[in-house]
Design a protein around this nucleic acid. Structure first.
Lengths: 341, 341
DNA sequence: CTGAAAGCGCTTACAG
DNA sequence: CTGAAAGCGCTTACAG
């Protein structure tokens, strides 16, 4: 590769100062129009590449935004990321991504990297058991932070997520209205706010309807298709044979339906199943999945918007919680109760 | 936030030079052990954050690696990314990700950003119609490049991908051996090397077996579940009623099966379907999908390894093509031919 | 409207 | 083993 072209290279060959070149390239009105155009044409011709590191060192703005989630391969996060990407596309921010796989150390490593790169902010779905001190470190180092999907107890930061308790009650009540009385809850964990809130909402809805909730009817854990698939055996062997399953998310629900079908029963007919999230593939599954719209596009868009506003100094919002209103989408995976023999 | 802690802050409070602090923090043997430990303890205590931009400006190594694919929400790329991430985890490289959605301009923007950030390299699955000049620009600016999944015509760079032509012949021959004679090909496009190679391989296998291939039996396009799902109607209405479908990838195959099931036929029994890629969810689908292992983990691992080697100056490999050997995984979505009425 | 100079926070020869 | 100094490529007051 040839000698690197920099501002001074352009300046010298044009007989102007680097300051002028710098201003011209950034469309400063301080520079005469004729000069500006001459500089720009020359920069293009010489194959000039702007050195962001140098600029960033000087201005302490990096144009980098961090995004951390549990796992980008999970379509729930994928759909949020897509919305973030779209919103950011209009700005000049580059976003850099990381999975934490719910390992606090991996998350910490990435946050440290962001600080080293002088990131302008971070949008994150915090790992399970994230200590408040990790979040405080970000504040101390001036890294604006916005939370998505999950809250961190005792931490005062803007959060964008769905109203889990209300959302799961929609699914549970729908099954109750179809005559189901023995309803199991599959998936999730008490270690996240979503896990706790959704279980609580399910229990409350059952009790309000005067229905019994058995501890054994809760299968803790599944969050993926594979895990939902594997849970089918356990579900079908549950005491008192529940006729329906409220799943913690769509992936577990789709996996569970597949497992039920393998066992020779018909999901949506013999066993009713609800999901949560309304992933794009929920409507494509067979049977199409009855599920709760959890607002991934809104969460991503609003979180990105809030971050951009903060970077642009529009306001320094503190700790408000924005709940997206869930909606029930009824499809073919739920139907009137059929007693199992 | 308090005054920023930098090397000189530590140096001053300890009565040593910034050079010594710098060396000590990087474990240079030039620094006395006692000094090193004193410096490190102090840095930790003062909450020192290493400024990578400054270091990178000086050394022209950024520790940043770019990864560009069509769409990270596609599990095919997700599985490759996971492997890249694992391989990179052991190094100190940060990777930054972008989708190009097969839009050459979006890809170009991101490559420009990488050059601005002084990235150490880029691993990419090039967008459709990527001009050779875009790739040459990278070389001119000293950005090492490794290609995955797709080749770019006329461009001499290392490529890691599956042997598409051979792989699709495994699927096609498997169906032929089950007695299928009218086999359709669903999905893919002539605009990518994978689309061309797989269609060619399918045609060749059919001809070798003395079977006819009709133009109408090719449904160009589907690459996602949604598209595969929608293609089911078209497939079922095809002239001469094919009894089997070779799909361009697993997503299209899974979608197609779902669409076939909705239409009241039984995929795997009434219609045989093969996929391509062997995604993690292929084995979970019902019926479990017969498909071709396309080596995503190997592709990711090898590409990342090649990139790291190049960064570390181990060798400057040029333009060799590494083909991963495909393997047929037979499951429940294929069975002996049943004539359709 | 343009230029000379300082400085962002590191690392790397070089000298001792 | 340690320090003083230069320089990476920008941007930003400041002066004219």
């Amino acid at each position: 590769m040839a000698q690197k072209v920099k501002l001074s290279t352009i300046g010298e060959s044009l007989g102007v100062s680097t300051a002028t070149v710098s201003l011209a390239l950034r469309d400063s009105p301080l520079v005469a129009e004729a000069t500006r155009e001459k500089v720009k044409a020359h920069a293009l011709e010489m194959g000039y590449i702007y050195n962001r590191r140098a600029a960033s060192l000087r201005t302490s703005k990096s144009g980098i935004l961090g995004v951390v989630v549990h796992d980008i391969m999970n379509p729930f996060y994928g759909e949020i990321l897509r919305a973030i990407e779209m919103e950011l596309d209009r700005s000049r921010q580059t976003f850099i991504l990381s999975n934490h796989y719910d390992r606090v150390e991996k998350q910490r490593d990435f946050l440290e990297t962001l600080m080293q790169l002088g990131a302008d902010g971070v949008i994150m779905s915090p790992a399970i058991d994230t200590p408040a001190s990790d979040m405080e470190l970000l504040q101390k180092n001036g890294l604006p932070t916005v939370l998505i999907a999950r809250s961190v107890p005792e931490v005062d930061l803007p959060v964008f997520r769905g109203d889990d308790k209300f959302g799961i009650s929609l699914a549970t009540n729908h099954l109750i209205s179809l005559g189901h009385k023995r309803i199991a809850m599959i998936g999730g964990t008490d270690k996240t706010s979503t896990g706790r809130d959704r279980y609580e909402g399910y229990v409350e809805a059952m009790h309000k309807a005067g229905l019994e909730v058995k501890d054994e009817w809760r299968i803790v854990g599944p969050r993926t298709k594979a895990a939902g698939f594997e849970a089918a055996g356990q579900f079908l062997a549950l005491p008192d044979k529940p006729t329906a399953a409220v799943c913690w998310n769509d992936l577990a629900a789709i996996g569970l339906m597949s497992g039920i079908a393998r066992a020779g029963l018909r999901p949506g007919i013999d066993i009713s199943v609800t999901g949560y999230d309304d992933l794009e593939e929920a409507s494509i599954a067979t049977p199409a999945l009855t599920t709760v719209h959890n607002g991934q596009p809104e969460v991503g868009r609003l979180a990105a918007r809030a971050m951009l506003d903060r970077i642009e100094g529009k306001h320094s919002a503190h700790g408000e919680l924005t709940l997206i209103k869930p909606e029930l989408h009824i499809r073919q995976s739920t139907s009137k109760v059929v007693e199992r023999l």
